[in-house]
């Protein structure tokens, strides 16, 4: 008898569809009763990765805490698009204070809960990359160092998008922003070491650090759940493509997040107490061009004459990540799979 093998993967995505999984293995997002922490009607752009990331992460955190969650939010796109007065898209207790203080505000919330003996209620703080790696960095490092009971989530879209796409400490090399224009002999952002916040977080020795993207929903939800099962300072860094700032198609948000991983530019890993404990291997490695070419912010690298030299440098960044984290499975590992 002949039969067709069941295709677990959507074409090109490698993601298993929820319908093929047992009920218990399905994502929170596929559940009818999900909390919709960030509910519909907000003013995010079409294809906004941050809106997706926030809803995924907070709904997962809500499930993990049985709905006992409060959030501190830094100034930024997420704050602005979700709450123009008198409307709000937040269905959880939510406080926005300032751009640079979300980690400290969350510390205050956690301290208040501790004093009041409210162990049931948990605290999440969230910010974009500017609010995390730049202006909020001091407060974040302090929160890590004290090991306050806060999950801090950075939605990294690699620039200051809310103010009109200016460079942040998380902007990758050669990317065009409004303050690193694609002009002159060194177009786009400088090639530097960047500010690798997940690794900086690991250096603080906090209980849990993980990276995730909006392309891997199961992975993201699992990491949030893991984070909420731990007390102390935790850090989740989520890559969230921004169609506006990256000059990409709104329909490419998920594809770009996936290509960022598959190219090696955005490694997916988890670390506990200062050590990397798990790495997601690249299943089908792609050259960085596949990722870069979909984004207008790298347009100056391609075409005639283009800057193949800069593309090669970016490939080196990816290669370094692959080597550092062992992102490409060895032959033996592949056989096991």
């Amino acid at each position: 008898m002949t039969h067709d093998p069941v295709r677990f993967y959507q074409v090109g995505s490698f993601a298993a569809g929820n319908r093929l999984l047992d009920q218990g293995q399905r994502t929170e997002q596929s559940r009818r009763g999900r909390s919709n922490s960030l509910t519909s009607g907000h003013r995010a752009c079409q294809g906004c990765g941050e809106a997706l990331g926030a809803r995924y992460a907070l709904d997962a955190a809500m499930r993990a805490t049985d709905g006992r969650l409060v959030a501190a939010n830094a100034t930024g796109c997420l704050e602005v698009f979700s709450t123009p007065y008198p409307e709000t898209s937040w269905q959880i207790p939510w406080l926005h204070s300032l751009f640079g203080n979300a980690p400290a505000v969350a510390t205050g919330m956690a301290a208040a809960l501790e004093v009041k003996g409210r162990t049931d209620v948990r605290v999440v703080a969230q910010a974009g990359d500017g609010g995390t790696v730049d202006i909020g960095f001091g407060c974040l490092s302090g929160m890590f160092e004290r090991n306050d009971d806060v999950l801090f989530i950075c939605y990294d879209n690699e620039a200051y998008m809310n103010t009109g796409v200016q460079r942040s400490g998380a902007t990758p090399p050669a990317a065009r922003t409004a303050t690193t224009e694609a002009v002159g002999p060194e177009p786009g952002n400088e090639f530097g070491q960047g500010k690798d916040l997940p690794r900086i977080a690991i250096a603080h020795g906090i209980p849990y650090v993980a990276t995730a993207t909006v392309a891997e929903l199961h992975d993201l939800e699992r990491k949030v759940e893991r984070a909420m099962s731990i007390r102390g300072a935790r850090y989740l860094h989520v890559l969230v493509p921004c169609p506006l700032g990256w000059a990409s198609a709104s329909s490419d948000t998920i594809r770009l997040a996936r290509l960022a991983c598959e190219s090696g530019l955005f490694p997916l890993f988890e670390a506990e107490n200062g050590e990397v404990v798990d790495v997601t291997k690249i299943r089908r490695q792609v050259p960085v061009e596949d990722y870069l070419k979909l984004q207008g912010r790298y347009r100056h690298l391609f075409g005639d004459p283009g800057r193949p030299d800069l593309v090669r440098q970016i490939q080196k960044v990816a290669d370094r990540n692959i080597e550092r984290f062992g992102l490409v499975a060895t032959g033996a590992e592949q056989e096991v799979r």
């Binding site: 640079g100 919330m109 208040a112 009041k116 001091g138 302090g142």
Partner: peptide, 15 residues
């Protein structure tokens, strides 16, 4: 800056 920010979070939490 953190001192006042922590105070803000704590106060908003009812402490």
């Amino acid at each position: 800056f953190a001192a006042m920010s922590v105070s803000i979070g704590a106060s908003a939490m009812g402490a």
